[in-house]
Design a protein around this nucleic acid. Sequence first.
RNA 1: GCCGCAUUCGUCUAGUGGACUAGGACGCCGCCCUCUCAAGGCGGAGACCAAGGGUUCGAAUCCCUUAUGCGGCACCA
Length: 482
Amino acid sequence: MSETRVRFAPSPTGAPHVGNIRTALFDYLWARHTGGKFILRVEDTDQAREVENGLELILESLRYLGITWDEGPDVGGAYGPYEQSKRLPIYKRHADQLIAQGVAYHCYCTEERLEQMRKVQRARGEQTRYDYRCRYLSPEERAANERAGLPKVVRLAVPPEGKTTLHDFIRGDLTIENKNVDDQVLLKSDGFPTYHLAVVVDDHLMKISHVMRGDDWIPSFPKHVLLYQAFGWEIPPHGHVPMVTGADKKKLGKRHGSTSVLQFRNDGYLPEALLNFLARLGWSLDDKTEIFARQQLIDAFTLDKIERAPAIFDYGKLDWLNGYYIRELPDDELAARALPFIPQADPAMLRALVPLFKPRIKKLNEIAALVDFFFEQDLEYDPQLLIGKDADAATARAALRAAHATLEKYPEGAFDDEEKIEAELRADAERLGMKNLPFFGALRVAVTGKTVSPPLMSSMRLLGREKTLRRIARAIVMLEKP
RNA sequence: GCCGCAUUCGUCUAGUGGACUAGGACGCCGCCCUCUCAAGGCGGAGACCAAGGGUUCGAAUCCCUUAUGCGGCACCA
């Protein structure tokens, strides 16, 4: 069997979202699994919808996930160019060939007429489709149109009878009757091809061995099959991968919150976690394996395990996975990855804080809220928090005074003896007849400004003697006020 | 409206005629641990396999019908 060559062919119309990238991932995994090539081709054939930095957004999204490509716009390759806007003559040539064969024809209809036509069809409850007006023009009429210099497009002449079948390696045979297939435009009046012409021509010319794309493309496969047949080309195996949807079961889109890959990066998701999660949407190995490192994914990925039904993108499960991967990271590595999310932190200090926040976050952007008290001078909080639910100000004050007295005895050098300090503080609580909860609760708020925080002893150690004592003293004053 | 695709716990899924009293994971609930919150450990609830017909000694697994959901119906991809 010849080399596997698969391609990801996005349109530079904005930041790629996770649904598209999931398809790219399947392509990538299959290429790596088989030792073949993964090709990036940009389908920039719609000048109106194109976004300025569209290409860059695509490249960045793939890089973030570590999805590497062997041929593409930036790296070139033997079958370039890899931007369709740079291949216009190729499409023109092929369109001309189709016209010469009588498989396609020039159409001179205006947008206005087409819109009017569809309006009528819709009113009648029919499927909107081209009405063949220009398909059966006489040679004289055609010549007249040409002489008049009317703008024209090239349309595919779909056989009115029969049906077209495509074998899909995920779903089996797909069949659609030709009468339900529109005479699709192949070449637009601006000289750019539409998707239908461009994919077929490029997939063939670039020797693509397997075509994977979203199942929203299923309705248009007959056009592609017809083109392959007209050109006399072999149809590569096709597989329509299931859609990734939002919780409402609708195709993922802007309405579903953050779906852009880059947004996940900015929110603090690790690429290895997103990669793992995406791979498991519409694909699974067996009845128990959830965690896959990149190489395991590559080793295990096969086409026959791709699912048919659409999958809802479950943010909750992604968060769990991300938390798992964070906990798996070595402390030094986590510190390095966390730095961009808390730039005000001194790197050495942040490194020391890792053990405190590591088991407590699911995303890197949660770190700041957890450890911000380390980086502030005086804390702002409601004094009521010091007292807690079932206690009173006097009790809280007594607890803080005791704690302050105890901690004060420890000089700078001995302040990091967590065990000893904790034992003594517990003894303080007991002497005051207080339970641990209210005692440490008051101390926690005084030191961290929060009722929920990383472990107290470690927090005080890292905060340092001076700041700790000052905060406790300040809390005592707050309780004395009124 | 027309055409197409899909249908196993809330979600991601295992399952390809008997090993299924349908397995795992997330989430949820409870317990343990415990200075809070997590993490971790243990346990639990949760799917009559969309419905109805067949085929078969036997069906989540094969066939048909229906229902529901989704997708497509552009000089967009």
